[in-house]
Design a protein around this nucleic acid. Sequence first.
DNA 1: TCCAACATGTTATATCATAACGATCAGCGC
DNA 2: GCGCTGATCGTTATGATATAACATGTTGGA
Lengths: 157, 157
Amino acid sequence: MPTLGFHTHDHADCIASTMAHAEAVCAEKKLRLTPVRRRTLEILLDEHRALGAYDILEILGKEGLGTAPPVAYRALDFLTSAGFAHKIEGLNAYIACAHLGSDHAPAFLICTKCKTVAEADTPTDTGRLAEAARTTGFAIERTVIEALGLCPACQDA
Amino acid sequence: MPTLGFHTHDHADCIASTMAHAEAVCAEKKLRLTPVRRRTLEILLDEHRALGAYDILEILGKEGLGTAPPVAYRALDFLTSAGFAHKIEGLNAYIACAHLGSDHAPAFLICTKCKTVAEADTPTDTGRLAEAARTTGFAIERTVIEALGLCPACQDA
DNA sequence: TCCAACATGTTATATCATAACGATCAGCGC
DNA sequence: GCGCTGATCGTTATGATATAACATGTTGGA
């Protein structure tokens, strides 16, 4: 069942619980949630929308955490590899994972106006892509499932 | 029923029939299939795999059809707007549409090694994204549905 | 014929991303 | 503690993708 995000929620709690979860996963898997990585994840969670690598870099720079592009890209690589964040290919932007903990093939509804993103998780082994892959012998490594459009709020405006 | 592309086929015929179809559509919709646009579509059909805008530009340049990036991007914008080509967001590359004529939400199986792309068309009003959009009031303008991985041939190699 | 819309040519620049290399740091066996 | 090893970081430079802006040319209809 998809869980979606165009609604209000306890934001402070969602940040805190996700950070706690990320720390637990890092401890378990011997990953290192360094200051830059931690802060990058916080920024993504805080905004709750898709951010470009250079948007993040600008914030990191103001806080003295680095100014060169690789700083942001390395942090984002780590977060996406660990499953803590996803890349939105349709926007060349990044977003915190809204479903930490489940092994998932994320699907996104992306508002092109306000850049808010709703994440709907789907099983990894069903759906048209999985079916097509099975019938052709294709080995899926990664899926990109995105819908670009306008969220309810931006349609009204 | 998806039609997929990791198999041999009559390539000359597939190019000819697609070009003929494109011309018919342009005639009907009063679109202008100019030399650059026509040649760009031919290039995409000829390769039958995802090509970057600058790959196309290089070929166009050798043929005297233009050397500056906007030449390629404008042709690609036209082709994608008209539905004759699609952008593969996961590769920042472009490919000719394999299902000209049907109003479709394309789904792709993309080999990251040889860049061959299989296009499976799906109805525009079903599936998880459409369902999620309906339940949230999201207005979909465009969908990006891609699986990146290895095709049968590249798995063996 | 003239106009308006569309298309093209060109320069410059914006945006997104990574290669490469040396310095530094954390964990680990001794 | 010492030194090894692999991960991480800081930095410079560059590569790859994409568009803004504006002048010029072309097309087809009023």
